[in-house]
Nucleic acid binder design. Structure first.
Length: 921
RNA sequence: GGGCGAUUAGCUCAGUUGGUUAGAGCGCCACGUUUACACCGUGGAUGUCGGGGGUUCGAAUCCCUCAUCGCCCACCA
């Protein structure tokens, strides 16, 4: 826009008939070529808006829920771009972790073996076996590096597909900034950040009992837990006091009887006071265990006294730690009872029973023990079925066991109260949208019960960049890890050799050995702000300083405890800042029956389907209609409305542009120049329309600043329909220059005023709708501004500009004029005649201000309503009308209707003859 | 058990610091080919604001309570 406020338009030929088909392809190609969404990086941090995009998992398919939340982000990105920000909007792909590992295994028929060397000539045994599982015995072992290469190969195909879909949806991503989480750069960042944590003492290793998944054979972090209902049985079992009295306990896990180290009751429990400090004997096994008191024992649960085993659950761990109990572990890492009979079971009967359970699964072992207890009479009654909540690994399907192992931990405020308080403080600093989502963060941080367990006993992922010395006697010296220098990262310790050693010294006394564990996938994902901004990267070119800390983290509400929290923790420890100012949480997508969409329910909608059917703008409209944090139903109806809106926008713009052309002695279909000079807007109705536009721009802008994209859309959309239904209808004749009933033509100034208002109005709508309907707005933008570049880098409309045009004319003038027209239309609608039917006479009634407004637009109203005779005006007050309505039913129906200040009533109307229908051509 | 959110027309949802007689779209009904739009236009009908209690001149809105739904956390004897 020029400084004189004149909007110069270069009008291109218009189509005879408009449609939304094909716009995605046309403009996606154009945007690719012109690189409108490329981050420029030529301003400082204040001119940049940076977005930490969630990298979708590239295994499998996207579903329509992705479309939903990514559209929310894209609306914001496009809005900020139009506000003049250099928007930094990268896309990542998450291909680090179990889903990808399993997929690559099945697709290529390979599995990782960290003992193998990298083979550059490796060819996988299978290719493209999607869908059918390759049995483990048919999988060929490969080195980690080979596995990563296969993963990159496979995901590259998916990424292409995903990228195409995102582009079709109109996401304004800078595709030159793409990353994937197992890629070299993210691996380097993850390892470097870990080494920094290690150097500062925030990363440490510990041998401790912890939750363990027996299927995946790995330790699991608190954040990856999921409680699920799991069926079990209560067994009432008798221990025996020294005098032989049975002491009954209740347990759901009798198979752990052999691992029992104590019985525990609450210190205040009078029933067991006499037993504290004494020992009891376990049934059959005959092992003596102490009866102890601990406040964590609950008097009203079961019989009030519990068997403490190492380890049945996390409370056992607490008791074991607090009461310094011995470790008597009988469950192995694969979830089976260990083969060797433990030395603490000494009785013959006990050892025989144990041998019977050895190497059995917990399920089978339980059966053996229960039968034995029933036979010996130590079980009271039958097992009572129960459903209890049990911890599962979120990706696993067997309950977690507790085993003791050496693991790496990262401080996250789970043990350090000061850090915990600092992280809570960061949570307060972060602006959550919607705000109530903050409590989920607070709940999580307050409920942490240990540091972040980051090591996983898996093979695919980012390796810990560590080796350990092997002593001369062949022991691994975990206490003195060997670290690489930062400049050689990323490394794989199973194939790379630490400085000062040679490959021949691997795993030999006096040499070194690799840390074979990999990091939790969140250990990489938690660093996406550092990854995308090229923290500490040589090729950064100052990118980090221009983009970090970032502005926005959009993400799902389900991963506040993982992705959001761990990112905050990492940035706090490494950069001493919050990684972003805002976080935007989208809701769930529910199917039309309000069930959450998920693969297992089989109700997932593939996003390409609705995009193809209704158009990308329509699907975006549906997504953008839902506020942040609010669940939304998959709603085809809403998409149809979006499609209708886009088509309406095309048609209204076509009209506004075609009508302006005749003035230039041009016909529709030809190019033309136009200059929409705001000083040419002189008619009160036109000014009122600009006044309302100013108000709409102000409201929409404020809503977008508050991350309320849905409210902004609603505001813009409502006014757009008013603009079409009322304003355009009112000024159509004037804009055409149509003479009135008396043959009087509108003045040139009046014609120009209408045409300019139409032009400036539609120019504004193109820009206001641009974040929501990027394709149709780009189409119309190019109809009116052929050489002006993309609407998506055009400036966002400013309320002040339109307010200046409006001068002091109030927006209510448009409302009154619109309601007056509606009143005239109602006469015809109720008489069931064509809108072309002339009105011979009518009286319009409105509040005094309304009368003034109607007078100011009377010619337009009369002509739009085809009033050929006298149009009278009569003043009423809102109060009068309401009183009249309730006091008497003798009034005209219209008088009884409740009115507000902008309502216009009608009476004494008289219709003429409907026009004769013209025969069809 | 603790917490968060929701409950408004047949459906999907707005409803601001409490303020006249609670709104929109879809769907429904009726009418209308009108030189932007039949992928359309015009007009109309539609409510125990989940229940109960309270504060107030006045409550969809604030407080208490109950119910239902969704989610988060805790609960493994």
């Amino acid at each position: 826009m020029a400084t004189d406020g004149i909007i110069h338009a270069h009008l291109t030929p218009l189509p005879d008939r408009v449609g939304v088909e094909g716009l995605e392809e046309k403009w996606t190609k154009n945007w690719d070529e012109s690189q409108v969404f490329k981050f420029k990086g030529n301003t400082d941090r204040t001119g940049v808006y940076s977005i930490d995009t969630p990298p979708p998992t590239v295994s499998g398919h996207l579903h329509v829920g992705h479309v939903f939340s990514y559209t929310h982000t894209d609306v914001m990105a496009r809005y900020k771009r139009m506000r003049g920000y250099d928007v930094f909007y990268p896309m990542g792909w998450d291909d680090n972790g179990l889903p990808t590992e399993r997929r690559v295994q099945n697709y290529y028929g390979v599995r990782v073996d960290t003992s193998l060397k990298y083979d550059p000539a490796f060819k996988p045994p299978f290719e493209g076996t999607e869908g059918k599982k390759i049995e483990a015995r048919d999988q060929v072992p490969v080195s980690r590096q080979n596995f990563i290469e296969l993963c990159e190969k496979l995901t590259a195909q998916d990424e292409k597909q995903f990228e195409a879909l995102w582009k079709t949806l109109g996401l304004s991503i800078d595709w030159t900034q793409t990353y994937h989480t197992i890629g070299e750069h993210p691996r380097r960042v993850a390892q470097k950040a870990f080494l920094r944590n290690l150097a500062r003492g925030e990363a440490y290793q510990q041998e401790a009992p912890g939750l363990w998944d027996i299927t995946f054979q790995t330790a699991v972090a608190q954040a990856e837990l999921e409680s699920r209902e799991y069926p079990g049985f209560y067994h009432k079992i008798a221990f025996h006091a020294e005098d032989g009295t049975p002491i009954y306990i209740e347990t759901t896990r009798p198979e752990l009887l052999g691992a029992c180290v104590a019985l525990i009751a609450h210190p205040d429990d009078t029933r067991y006071q006499h037993l504290f400090g004494k020992t009891v004997t376990s049934p059959i096994f005959g092992v003596k265990v102490p009866v102890l008191a601990h406040p964590k024992a609950e008097m009203d649960k079961g019989v009030g006294i519990a068997m403490c085993c190492t380890f049945g659950d996390m409370v056992d761990v607490e008791w074991w730690r607090d009461l310094k109990l011995p470790t008597r572990s009988i469950i192995t890492r694969n979830g089976r009872i260990s083969a060797e009979t433990p030395e603490w079971i000494t009785s013959e009967a006990g050892r025989a029973l144990y041998a019977e359970t050895a190497t059995k699964t917990t399920f089978s072992a339980r059966k053996v023990i229960v039968e034995a207890l029933q036979a010996s009479g130590d079980m009271d009654g039958e097992p009572i079925p129960t459903k209890r909540m049990t911890n599962f690994y979120e990706k696993g399907d067997k309950p977690l066991e507790i085993v003791t192992s050496r693991q790496w931990y990262l401080s996250n405020g789970g043990t350090d109260k000061k850090l915990n308080a600092e992280l809570l403080e960061r949570g307060k600093e972060l602006q959550f949208h919607p705000g109530f989502m903050r409590v989920r963060y607070d709940n999580w941080v307050n409920g942490l019960n240990g540091d972040w367990l980051v090591s996983r006993q898996r093979f695919f992922g980012v390796p810990f960049p560590l080796w350990y010395p092997v002593t001369d006697s062949g022991e691994t010296d975990y206490a003195h890890p060997i670290v690489p220098s930062e400049d050689i990262l990323p490394i794989d310790p199973t194939t790379d050799v630490p400085a000062g050693f040679e490959e021949s010294q691997r795993d030999v006394p006096g040499g070194f050995t690799a840390e074979k564990d990999i990091m939790d996938t969140w250990a990489t994902s938690s660093l996406t702000p550092q990854i995308v901004t090229h923290w500490e990267e040589k090729d950064s070119n100052g990118l980090f300083e221009k983009t970090f800390p970032m502005d926005l983290r959009p993400q799902g509400q389900d991963i506040i405890r993982t992705w959001l929290f761990s990112s905050v923790a990492r940035a706090h420890l490494e950069n001493h800042v919050l990684p972003w100012k805002h976080t935007a949480l989208s809701g769930w997508i529910l199917d039309p029956d309000h069930k959450k969409m998920s693969k297992s329910k089989g109700n997932v909608v593939v996003p390409s389907e609705p995009i193809e059917k209704f158009g990308a703008d329509a699907v975006r409209y549906w997504a953008a209609s839902a506020r942040l944090g609010t669940d939304a139903a998959y709603d085809i109806g809403q998409m149809k409305i979006g499609r209708r809106l886009a088509i309406k926008l095309l048609n209204a713009t076509k009209f506004a542009l075609s009508i302006g052309r005749e003035d230039e002695n041009h016909h529709v279909g030809e190019s033309a120049q136009a200059a929409w000079d705001p000083t040419k807007i002189t008619e009160p109705l036109d000014r009122a329309t600009m006044a309302k536009l100013a108000r709409v721009v102000r409201t929409a802008t404020k809503a977008l600043e508050d991350f309320d994209h849905a409210k902004a859309l609603e505001t813009i959309e409502t006014f757009f329909w008013e603009f079409c239904d009322d304003y355009i209808e009112l000024v159509k004749n004037r804009a055409y220059g149509t003479p009135d009933e008396n043959g009087k033509e509108p003045s040139g100034a009046a014609i120009m005023s209408a045409r300019t208002t139409l032009g400036i109005g539609l120019d504004a709508f193109a820009r206001l709708f641009a974040p929501y309907l990027p394709f149709s707005t780009e189409e119309i933008w190019h109809w009116m501004h052929e050489d002006a570049g993309s609407v998506h880098v055009a400036p966002w409309p400013e309320a002040g500009y339109y307010a200046t045009i409006a001068l002091k004319v109030p927006p209510e003038l448009l409302d009154h004029a619109g309601h007056a027209l509606a009143a005239l239309r109602k006469i015809k609608s109720e008489a069931k005649v064509s809108m072309k039917t002339p009105i011979l006479a009518a009286t319009l009634k409105a509040v005094p201000a309304g009368i003034e407004h109607i007078k100011a637009a009377l010619d337009d109203i009369a002509q739009a309503g085809r009033v050929t005779g006298k149009l009278e005006l009569a003043q009423i007050s809102a109060g009068e009308a309401a009183d009249a309505g309730s006091a008497s039913e003798a009034h005209d129906a219209a008088d009884v209707a409740p009115i507000d200040d902008t309502e216009v009533l009608i009476s004494d109307s008289q219709l003429g003859e409907p026009p004769v229908k013209k025969p069809k051509k």
